[in-house]
Design a protein around this nucleic acid. Structure first.
Length: 258
DNA sequence: ATGGCAGGTACGACCTGA
């Protein structure tokens, strides 16, 4: 089974890229973030014509998350949940669904703007709620995959210039300690279970040739619960879509489970 | 310290992203 995640930065603009990637990789489950569209504009019929079903939670202009599932291999999603149960929010940042015994969560963690800002405080509170709710979910659903844009680079190895990003947003000790709390619930950072090329990132700034110079961060992750981890056989970040014309600033990440 | 690039909203200029 192949699980994947991609922050598409507008599904409307990226629909062709997503469709090409689905055709090429045929993931069983794909979590999407930053749809930037309302539910009435979600291209459900298009995905269905490609053999994918979807559950989604969008809003105007910002945020928005979805789960695509391959209809040939996956049952209909059960117990669809939107947002964090312990954090009522207008912003659509989480969608979760169960496929057989697998709980799959697609999350778009708050960016946080700048360390010390109001948005940063909101990010930390949001992450505290995620830690609490993930603990509860894990009891209920032992086989759980949490995928998405975490907006946290867990370690200096996940940053092109750790000195320049020292204690900056996405890299601060407050954010990293919360990422660690997620891991300490028994989760595995799937990407780090394998030997990886140094300086492998999942996001690059559009400006100043960020991608061409590989000035990036690894902030998109696939976390697997303890019972799921032994099934993990491969995890890759796919840079190819980032090379296309009019790309998302994020690359997709995928994991293979046996 | 600032701005640079991109998308959305809405049609000028600003907000947000990371």
């Amino acid at each position: 089974m192949k699980l994947a995640s991609w922050n598409v930065n507008s599904l409307k603009v990226r629909l062709e890229h997503v469709s090409e990637w689905l055709t090429l990789h045929e993931p069983d489950l794909l979590g999407l973030q930053e749809l930037k569209l309302t539910d009435d504009s979600f291209p459900l019929a298009h995905f269905e014509s490609m053999g994918y079903g979807a559950v989604f939670a969008g809003q105007k202009t910002y945020n928005g998350v979805a789960i695509l599932y391959k209809q040939a291999s996956m049952p209909k999603p059960q117990d669809v949940e939107i947002n964090l149960p312990s954090f009522p929010d207008e912003q659509r940042r989480v969608i979760a669904a169960t496929f057989d015994d697998l709980r799959f969560v697609s999350a778009y963690v708050v960016n946080g703007s700048e360390v010390g800002s109001e948005k940063f405080a909101y990010k930390l509170k949001w992450l505290d709620a995620l830690i609490k709710d993930l603990a509860d979910w894990t009891k209920k659903y032992p086989d759980l995959a949490l995928v998405g844009d975490f907006n946290i680079a867990p370690a200096d190895a996940d940053v092109y210039d750790p000195a320049a990003w020292d204690e900056a947003v996405l890299c601060s000790p407050e954010e990293r300690s919360r990422f660690k709390s997620l891991i300490e619930l028994g989760y595995t950072d799937a990407f780090r279970q394998f030997e990886q090329a140094p300086s492998t990132f999942s996001w690059w700034d559009y400006r100043q040739l960020g991608f061409q110079k590989n000035r990036g961060l690894r902030i998109d992750h696939i976390l697997l619960s303890q019972s799921l981890t032994p099934r993990l056989t491969q995890c890759e970040i796919d840079r190819i879509p980032r090379k296309k014309k009019q790309p998302s600033d994020h690359a997709p990440i995928w994991a293979q489970l046996k």
